[in-house]
Design a protein around this nucleic acid. Structure first.
Lengths: 352, 352
DNA sequence: CTCCGGTTTGAATGCGCATGCAATATTGCC
DNA sequence: GGCAATATTGCATGCGCATTCAAACCGGAG
């Protein structure tokens, strides 16, 4: 009561304007430029100056306004990350790792989540308006869209995506190679009658995986392959296996699912709905190496994407590009980690 | 080929400064204010004005600078979302839904991902510097931290968290109630010897769940309960079950795991390492109702958090608070959806 | 005491936009 | 046609900060 409302610890609670560098300057009895310099990296300021300013700033609860700073430095220190529903569902580490790694470099992540890959346009509009320093996208871009971003001077890293006929920076896992390995392993172990459960039509990753599998099968002389479309969910995997059984009348030797969730769905369906043994009666393989695939009840034979190394690469590449816009395009392709799980009957490789 | 390199759609490729409202104004032969008004909601502009400006803007590839706009309007149209590693791992829908819902209101999400709940301080500093309009946190805040944010005039919504001795807006699922139901069901079906697998020590959610379970057990006269700590991972669930077996020498009637992943780990361990039947020899229950819990091989009896309704509530509450800072605090508590899966031996409830 | 190199500081400016105010154009109404 | 009321436009200003430039300062060598 011995003082007016404004307490010493900081300005009054909330209802008022935030302290600016001018307020701090006034309280510290210095110029605004001095305050600005104290809150920067390479600026010169005497020890005494620094102390006075910091004391005043502390008293006022002052924090530099990153928005204003961004306006003048032309650097927002934000990058946009575009993901689809699927991305975060099947690789929840992706976003977290990416964000943490960027954070280590003082960069914040502005997140954009698409319902489906496709409604990117309004999103890109926002990305451009926020003057982000860069963009990582795990969703597809049309050449047109890609050019719009590049023209705005924003470096882009594609994550497991490509843009047709365009030179772009990308980080991806070699999906086709992984599928080829899976098919080869199955073939070597004697599997001949194959069914493939694909992902949704608009998924480039699914397309690539299916292409890899079909190509390898073709090389091995197998052409009569049953194809069923799923949507990456385990429910769709169950449905797909049921459809395969309905059409074939008996289980195929092996089911190649475009991801682990659907592989699990296939296994569930085989066991529960058809009383089959996995891998006794039918082998099932997936892709991704996600958590559930490693549970003992499934132990899916699969290919794991090295998400950690991929996010690391994406962050490093983007930061390089932000620092130097004229770097030429680069593609970093990672091989997946091959996991010989118990869901498929494979040759024993006791090559120790 | 019939045109020079630079197309009509926008200016030259990247290397130059982005177009500003002045550039557009000049090209359109109008004032800068006119341009500004055309790119706003309720501003008055004649049809002709609008056309001229939009044509010029299009030719220059102009987009309003959201940073500059934020500086002057004192609204960044960004909210901060703070999550921990765990959050995104076990509720991948949370982030995506939240982001999409905010997006529908023209609000962008600035993402902060914590390694562990605890290193929030530097993060909050960033949150404050970016002048976000609001904050949703799925990580714990100290009363001190909470006050800092509130003093800055930033509305906060706590997600499945509370701040001790503090009036805060929150959206949460009633963990204790869910746990009480699970225990009651197990008890009714004759289970008497219980073991509990808790989550990590620093997880408020785990604490609340364990408390709920223990409290209900106590009410039922059961006090000798084996407690083992896990870390929410299925691997820790396996380890926990092994430890329980080691200490008890025989399986308990029921294992109450603090989340589904650990419940699955327990089931795997019971079946594989100890040759037990679930739920024949031991019942296992979890919490969360996440995807893998619904796989046929586990079919975990659990309580599902209504993530959809919770994110909806969080977004609605925050937007209300952004519009009207003086709204009093509100807590919205949701009951979980009770799922009677096959992982526990329960009484038949054919109450149809 | 003077002069010079280096460091620290302050005044002034502008980043790109929204907005209050005054000037002007347009419309409606008698 | 005349005038008030309204809609449209331009001018000027400032949001909060970084940064340039010149002034002030400091210490040491001569």
């Amino acid at each position: 009561m011995n003082k007016p409302a404004k307490s010493a610890s900081n300005n009054d609670s909330g209802s008022h304007r935030r302290a600016t560098s001018y307020d701090v300057a006034e309280l510290a009895g210095v110029s605004q430029s001095a305050v600005s310099r104290v809150f920067q990296q390479g600026a010169s300021a005497s020890k005494e100056m620094r102390d006075r300013v910091l004391t005043a700033a502390n008293k006022l609860g002052y924090r530099p306004n990153a928005i204003a700073r961004g306006l003048i430095t032309q650097r927002s220190n934000m990058v946009a990350v575009v993901i689809s529903q699927q991305t975060n569902l099947y690789y929840p580490e992706f976003l977290v790792q990416l964000t943490q790694r960027f954070s280590e470099h003082g960069i914040r992540v502005l997140l954009f989540a698409l319902e489906h890959e496709g409604d990117i346009d309004q999103m890109l509009e926002q990305v451009l308006q926020y003057r982000v320093d860069g963009l990582v996208t795990a969703a597809m871009l049309s050449p047109q869209q890609f050019r719009t971003i590049e023209n705005a001077g924003i470096p882009v890293i594609l994550y497991n995506r490509t843009v047709p006929d365009t030179l772009a920076n990308s980080v991806r896992c070699d999906q086709a190679e992984g599928e080829r390995w899976l098919v080869s392993e199955l073939f070597d172990a004697g599997h001949r009658r194959f069914a493939i459960v694909t992902g949704p039509e608009d998924s480039p990753v699914s397309t690539e995986r299916t292409r890899g599998a079909l190509q390898r099968l073709d090389e091995l002389g197998i052409r009569d392959v049953k194809l069923v479309r799923g949507d990456y969910s385990s429910a769709s995997g169950r449905a797909a296996f049921a459809e395969i059984m309905r059409e074939l009348g008996e289980p195929p030797d092996a089911v190649v699912a475009a991801n682990d969730a659907m592989a699990i769905g296939c296994i569930d369906s085989a066991r529960v709905a058809f009383g089959l043994e996995v891998p006794g009666d039918v082998s099932v393989v997936g892709f991704d190496g996600v958590g559930p695939a490693r549970f003992a009840a499934y132990d899916v034979t699969t290919v794991r994407q090295p998400v950690g190394r991929m996010t690391e690469a994406a962050v490093a590449m983007l930061i390089d590009r932000i620092g130097n816009t004229s770097l030429s395009a680069e593609q970093r392709v990672f091989s997946g980690e091959r996991i010989r799980g118990g869901s498929a009957r494979l040759l024993d490789t006791s090559d120790q």
